[in-house]
């Protein structure tokens, strides 16, 4: 009898990475559904297209790197990157904008740094920031006008044709400035009441956007409930955003109000699905709180005083830079030690 020789532990009960990623995809579906309901088929087409490009570019680069293609594709991480970009990009973003975003996310931000687990920056956000800077017109003028799916002009075929053609003129009649964009650019010369009369805001906070954000919030709670993410990053993100808004933005005639920050734009998607990417986030609980709060504060800073209406991508990337620094200074206190050992390899022993 030859017995299996293995080092302990012999029992395992892990949820494999592929399943974790699958749950992330499933938890994002309510948000996608809300997007389809209020902004048409554009997001669905983007998601499918982005996932396809993500898998293809992941496979190609794995092949170039002589890595087992099927083994890595099965972990579903490339699919999640594609999904997140599909959910974030404007509904009528031309196909090549999405493709550039996805390819740079997978090839440059992820694989050139060593593949899964080795990327210091959130791949999806690298892709997003890259196209936002490179194609500012395509990234700001292709947002769909909020309307219920059955009330809107372009059907599935029209949307697909518009995305595939990439012609700006085709979509002009179906698009509208996003609430954050509208507010930011009008508030300097108008009162809050005048700004909010714009149809992009609807009757509530921000037509459609509020439901999309609520759906991503619900999906986020599912992820926390499944212990796929912890509450620390989203709570710190949203908490910092609230604090900043209360501290600086109480005058609605000057800055977007708090609810607009929470329920318009990519706030909930960013807080629960993007900032929580474990690879590029801080690790300890304390570190996660700092990391999340940093993103929330930066989102407010950039939205209020920066040049961009939304800021999740830049904020996440900026805090990604800070992660090694945060990690070095926020280790937990180990059992039996009086205090945590901070720093890199300090000689001080506790």
């Amino acid at each position: 009898m030859a017995f299996v020789q293995q080092s302990s532990p012999h029992a395992h009960h892990a949820r494999p990475t592929s399943k974790v990623m699958l749950w992330v995809i499933l938890a994002a579906l309510p948000g996608l559904l809300a997007q389809i309901l209020f902004f048409g088929w554009g997001n669905l087409i983007n998601v499918v297209w982005c996932i396809a490009v993500a898998l293809a570019s992941e496979a190609a680069i794995l092949k170039l790197r002589s890595k087992p293609v099927a083994f890595f594709l099965k972990d579903n991480t490339a699919a999640v990157t594609g999904l997140l970009l599909g959910l974030s990009l404007p509904q009528f973003a031309p196909w090549w904008v999405s493709a550039v975003a996805v390819i740079s996310a997978i090839v440059i931000a992820k694989q050139l740094y060593g593949g899964l687990g080795s990327n210091p920056f959130n791949p999806a956000m690298v892709g997003y920031a890259l196209v936002l800077i490179s194609f500012p017109v395509a990234m700001t003028t292709n947002w769909a006008e909020p309307a219920l799916l059955w009330d809107r002009g372009p059907g599935f075929g029209d949307t697909l044709a518009a995305i595939a053609s990439g012609q700006q003129t085709v979509v002009d009649g179906w698009t509208m400035a996003t609430p954050l964009d509208e507010y930011k650019h009008k508030i300097a010369t108008h009162t809050a009441a005048e700004v909010l009369a714009h149809p992009t805001f609807g009757d509530g906070v921000a037509k459609g956007w509020e439901w999309v954000n609520a759906a991503f919030l619900a999906g986020g709670f599912v992820l926390i409930g499944l212990r796929i993410i912890t509450w620390h990053i989203p709570a710190a993100f949203l908490g910092a955003l609230v604090v900043m808004s209360l501290a600086f933005g109480s005058n609605a005639d000057q800055y977007a109000p708090l609810l607009m920050h929470l329920l318009a734009g990519g706030t909930m998607l960013g807080a629960f699905f993007i900032a929580t990417d474990p690879v590029s986030a801080a690790t300890s609980h304390q570190g996660k709180l700092i990391y999340g709060a940093g993103i929330g504060a930066l989102v407010y800073l950039i939205r209020s005083w920066g040049n961009y209406p939304d800021a999740v991508a830049f904020s996440v990337l900026l805090m990604n830079f800070a992660v090694p620094f945060i990690d070095h200074y926020t280790p937990p206190r180990t059992y039996g030690h009086r205090k945590a050992r901070r720093g890199i390899t300090g000689r001080g022993r506790s």
């Binding site: 990475t17 974790v20 991480t77 899964l116 687990g117 080795s118 474990p278 690790t283 300890s284 937990p332």
Partner: peptide, 12 residues
């Protein structure tokens, strides 16, 4: 063995 995705389950 797959790549570590820094999910932090181990620390939990």
């Amino acid at each position: 063995e797959q790549a570590c995705i820094r999910c932090g389950q181990c620390a939990e």
